[in-house]
C-alpha cells in the first residue's frame, strides 16, 4: 500500500485504469510486478479518490426487479442466512469486470445466488433449472 498522498494518488490512478472501460491488457501473465499485484489485490470497492470525468447525475426509479432484489437480499439477512457486510464482500469477490460491469442491484442478486450455493442451500443445477422455468413462465405470461 502506498503511504504518501502522492504515492496513493498514483496508485489510485492506476487502479482506476483497470476498470473495463479503460483497462490494462491482462492475459494471465506468467509473472507480474509486486506493484501490479498490489493493484490487483486491492479491494475493489475502495475507489474514493480515483480520477473520473464529470457525468450527468441521472435520476432513475427502482424497476420491479431492483426493488425485489433489495427485498430478497434483506429477507435473507433478516432470517440469518447472511449479513449485508458479507453481501458487500461478495460483490468485491465478483471481480472487476462484473463489479463495474453489472448494474448496482444486479451485483446484489448475483452474490445472493452465489451465497446460497456456497452454503449448500441450493445447487448450481437447481438454480439453472429454476431460472429456465421462471423464464419460460414469465415469457408465457407476457406473450
Amino acid at each position: 500500500m502506498a503511504s504518501t498522498p502522492t504515492q496513493y494518488d498514483s496508485f489510485q490512478r492506476q487502479a482506476a485504469n483497470l476498470t473495463p472501460a479503460d483497462r490494462l491488457p491482462l492475459d494471465s501473465p506468467y509473472e507480474i510486478s509486486n506493484e501490479l499485484y498490489g493493484l490487483l489485490r486491492k479491494v475493489l470497492h475502495d475507489l474514493g479518490g480515483q480520477p473520473d470525468t464529470p457525468v450527468p447525475f441521472t435520476e432513475k426509479g427502482e424497476e420491479d426487479w431492483e426493488m425485489n432484489t433489495y427485498l430478497t437480499c434483506e429477507c435473507l439477512g433478516w432470517r440469518g442466512v447472511w449479513n449485508s457486510e458479507e453481501r458487500r464482500r461478495r460483490e468485491n469477490d465478483l471481480g472487476a469486470t462484473q463489479y463495474f460491469g453489472l448494474p448496482y442491484y444486479a451485483r446484489w442478486i448475483t452474490t445472493a445466488a452465489k451465497a446460497l450455493v456456497d452454503r449448500g442451500l441450493i445447487t448450481t443445477d437447481e438454480l439453472g433449472r429454476k431460472m429456465d422455468e421462471v423464464r419460460a413462465r414469465l415469457e408465457g405470461q407476457r406473450s
Partner: peptide, 17 residues
C-alpha cells in the same frame, strides 16, 4: 494503520497512514 490488506476491509486506502 497502514497495513497490507489482502481481502475485504472498510478502512479506505485514502485514510491509511
Amino acid at each position: 494503520r497502514d497495513a497490507t490488506t489482502m481481502f475485504h476491509t472498510r478502512t479506505q486506502g485514502y485514510v491509511r497512514g
